[in-house]
Nucleic acid binder design. Sequence first.
DNA 1: GCCGTTTTCGGCCCGACTGTTTTCAGTCG
Length: 568
Amino acid sequence: MINEELAEIFGEMADIEEIEGNRWESLAYRKVSANITALGEDIREIYKRNELRKIDGVGSAIEKKIQQYIQDGKIDTYEKLKQKYPVDFRNLRKIQGLGPKKIGALFVNLGVTDIESLKRAIDAHKVAGLPGFGEKTEANLLKGIQVYSRSGASRILLGRAYGDIESLRSYLESTGLFDSLIIAGSARRMRESIGDLDILASSTRRKEAADAFINSEFVSGVVVSGESKITVNLKLGITCDLRFIDADSIGAALQYFTGSKDHNVHLRDLAIFRGLKLNEYGLFRGETRVAGSDEKGIYESLGLAYIQPELRENTGEIEAAMNGSLPGIVDYGDIKSDLHMHTNDSDGRNSLVEMLDHAKKSGLEYIAMTNHSVGLKIAHGLDAERFSELNARIDEESARIGIPALKGVELEILRDGSLDLSPNTIDQMDYVLAALHQYVSSNREENTGRIVKAIESGRINALAHPTGRLIGNREMYSIDLDAVVEKCIENKVFIEINGFPERSDLPADIVRRVHDSGVMFALGSDAHSISDLRFIRFAAAIARRGWLTREKIVNALNLNDFRKLLTK
DNA sequence: GCCGTTTTCGGCCCGACTGTTTTCAGTCG
């Protein structure tokens, strides 16, 4: 993805300029790097519209660099800087305690260019003794390398970590040493992946509370340990900050440590503009605290509507909160149904009865049972006969257990764009998902054509996991999503938000981009087991991060109203 | 290098923690 390449390049340019002592150039590159990462659209599209300068932080010099990269695949300034510092910043920066200045010093003095050569320098005991480096720094860098090689990828999927996070929280609560515990940071913003965990705590017995945390079975090592802040490595593979907060600044701390960083920078700018000062202890006018005990008060005092954590990415939410155009996004409690799940009749692990039972216990009002169809052999897809048997059981068991269940299917879109069950069989279903799983081409027109043909078949209700991405495994299909969304609107086909962590599909930035197009969204967990049913919450989180109101989500309807939308 | 309801020049978020220092630089979030 070209956005990531460019973000990486500007990040490295920021590092090198910082080594060279050019603070402000560094800051500018750093900012642009972050903003390109957050784009949510291929930067080449922005380039084609000649709107690069509209990206925050892009002025004439950086615009030229981006243009050159798109046209020639390289940036002269960057090549020149790299000649002077042929250093693997990307990976070295991942070592705890290594920033640009230290990397620069290691390269200039010892010729360190990557983690391997850093390891050799440490083994030869050459690092301690450099200006600014001592014995402890050398030991910490060695520890940092070990942590890095153990954990590899530094971000983990929130949907996968959620259970462990909850366990950690309940363990801490069970010690009785904490008066309150709040998860902040990207986990509170419900990002699909998190790079660390932020916990805010209040306690009258901080020392004991800190010891209980550090010595718990969740922790693999301590990084820093101060009076008010402790950083540890979790066995989960990420770091965790625990901060002790005074009760009267808890709102300010929560606001501050929920982030995102860019949101906070923007908010602080706004505070300064209004003659105020915002930090993690409160909102101040001179010495007087204007707000700080609760989070809402901070936004109010800045003249803003309250901004839900999921929206705090500095992508226009502050402007919207200022002029009253912030949408009232869907609540988790608004979601009445789960419209995508499997049983052991196809590739699920639990039986129909177990799934229905658990769905009911988890508070859903109704569900759609959507097993794979015969075209997906690897998932034991069902043919007409097996579906007819299953559908009879669905009616019977859903009545017995007391949760309405729609008879559904996740159909295969075949190579030629046709569907893999007969019209007759499809018509016996209450709810029809269609998806692309196989024969995915590198040809954008071909993929788009197949999907459009399925949408126009008049037999499907929703398009499942539209981009086909599998995080950490497979990029999105090459498809023309805007054309697909347009066809969905024309044909009254819903577009899915799949909450299965590796899918998270549509992604939130795309949801945001099409949230006002008129298309309706259908949320599903894609559960293959009873424990997967919790993923409907992450589908809802994507909807929230995509700025969706409840009116745009079919799962917010009760069963009767939902059925009225099912025209086919 | 970017940016402007205070500016076309002079600012650019800010506090905790650590380690190396003897008053501070670098890193992190």
